[in-house]
Simulated assay, not measured.
Amino acid sequence: MIRVLLTDDHPVVRFGLRTILEAQEDLTVVGECGSGEEAIELATSLTPDVVLMDLKMPGMDGATATAEIITRTPSRVVVLTTFDTDGDILRAIEAGATAYLLKDAPSDELVEAVRAAARGETVLASPVATKLVSAVQRPGLSAREAEVLGFVARGLSNIAISHELNVSEATVKSHLLHVFAKLDVNDRTAAVTVALRRGWLPQLP
């Protein structure tokens, strides 16, 4: 029996996931929670085979929680999210996630991903795999630097970015200084312009 922990801040989503998984004879849900902090606590105490992890939640985000769970337990983490940006994907994979699926994935795909993850196999949704290959092959900015610059491109201030990423404002400034150095620019606007021109950031709508 594959034991699964559900982590999502929406109770309705958790209910749907539980219904799908427990309809399978070889899967059982041993716990559920709505935050990264709770996920770490429950994963440590329950040691499930697989943790289904949302990325964007109040407090600690899913990627940070994933890294902690991978460090503390033998559990595998399957990211299930609506987000498929390069930064989100790379952070989750770098944190140690075994699989990365989007929430619009068919239920049978989700079930098979949980089974594969329990076996230690990597599973990536097709659009996610394409983005990941592209991001890994792209030179220049690190995943976090690109993520910070992406927020800059959307008009967020340093303090707003720090809140989005749950890091200090000083850390955001440090990432931006590295970005400026790599792009040979002196300000935020120039950094975004050059990064877009080089294809290191997605074109903004």
Rank of each mutant, 00 (worst) to 15 (best):
L196Q: 14
S174H: 15
E112I: 00
T47S: 12
G120P: 12
V51W: 01
P139R: 10
E145R: 05
T7M: 12
V133K: 13
G199P: 09
L52A: 04
E164H: 14
V148P: 11
A67T: 06
M60E: 08
H10C: 01
L183Q: 11
P106E: 05
L176D: 11
L55S: 04
L102D: 09
D26A: 07
E38L: 03
A160M: 15
L6H: 06
L176H: 06
A97H: 02
R138W: 07
I70H: 04
E37R: 14
Q24S: 09
D26S: 12
S126T: 13
Y100W: 01
V194E: 14
T82N: 06
G31E: 08
T171S: 10
D26K: 09
V4L: 11
T81N: 07
R154E: 15
V123D: 09
T64L: 06
E25L: 07
R138Y: 06
R119V: 04
H175A: 13
L5S: 08
A65R: 04
T47I: 12
A116H: 05
T28A: 14
K182V: 12
P127Q: 11
V79P: 09
H175M: 12
E112Y: 00
T66F: 01
R138P: 12
E22F: 05
D49L: 05
L101E: 07
R198T: 04
G87F: 03
R198C: 02
E38D: 14
K131D: 05
R154D: 14
L156G: 04
D61W: 01
L42R: 14
G120A: 02
A95E: 09
D184K: 10
G34E: 07
A39W: 03
A135L: 02
G150T: 00
L46E: 08
L21V: 02
E121G: 07
L46G: 08
S107K: 08
N166D: 15
E121L: 03
R144S: 15
V148M: 10
E38C: 04
Q203F: 00
